[in-house]
Simulated scan of single mutants.
Amino acid sequence: MIENIELLKYPIGEFVMPEVITDNQLTEWIKTIEEFPKQIKQEVEGLSDKDLEKRYRPGGWTIRQVVHHCADSHMNSLTRFKLALTEEQPIIKPYAEHLWAELADSKLPIESSLAILDGLHYRWAILLKSLSNTELDRTFIHPANHEIVSLRVNIGIYVWHCNHHLNHIINAKQYNYYE
């Protein structure tokens, strides 16, 4: 059993942006975004309702909540990309993800969120592959810290997000934390 709560919370570490984002890096990142639905499906395939209630750490979300959160978060991210592509440096709308994870739809079977991830990531990958360097440099402002985020950087953030939550599911399957 892992005892370090930070390792349980951040199983792949916190996001670190490379100093230079190469075209090859972008291609790999987009491939990760494109393949995420298949990866998450592989991790949850065959899990029972009881298994979906396992948590990746004490006090953390259940596997079910993680799957629904990924659909919620990635819907928001795709919207942010489209806003940045169609408006001049928009201020994005944050959301209270910890509260969304407690809403009634986060208790549903996971199939609806897996279907959302399939369609959303298909569209997202097509959009990302079509972007020019000028478009990748478009930005939005996150109001929580007034940070200006480029779409190029945001791709990396969401690749980290995919891998971060994929590892939460892997850990939850191993460590049987229930509350």
Rank of each mutant, 00 (worst) to 15 (best):
I2D: 03
K9W: 09
K9N: 12
I12S: 06
V16L: 11
E19W: 04
T27E: 13
T27R: 15
E28S: 14
W29K: 02
K31R: 13
T32K: 07
E34C: 03
F36S: 01
I40P: 02
I40T: 04
Q42W: 05
E43S: 10
V44C: 05
L47A: 08
L47H: 10
D49N: 14
K50E: 15
L52P: 03
E53M: 15
E53K: 14
R55Y: 06
R55H: 14
Y56C: 00
R57D: 03
P58I: 12
G59V: 04
I63K: 03
Q65A: 12
V66N: 04
H69I: 11
D72K: 10
S73R: 03
S73I: 07
M75T: 15
T79K: 13
F81D: 04
K82E: 11
P94H: 14
Y95M: 02
Y95W: 12
L99C: 02
E102C: 05
A104V: 11
S106F: 12
P109D: 15
E111T: 13
S112Y: 11
S113L: 00
I116A: 10
D118H: 03
L120N: 00
Y122Q: 15
W124I: 09
A125P: 01
L127F: 04
L127G: 02
L128D: 02
K129A: 12
L131K: 07
L131G: 05
L131F: 04
E135F: 02
L136A: 06
T139V: 13
H142A: 03
P143T: 06
N145Y: 09
I148Y: 00
V149Y: 09
V149D: 08
N154R: 07
G156I: 10
G156Y: 05
I157L: 10
V159G: 03
V159R: 00
C162A: 14
H164M: 06
H164D: 07
H165Q: 08
H165I: 05
L166I: 11
N167T: 13
I170D: 09
K173G: 01
Y175G: 02
Y175F: 14
Y175R: 11
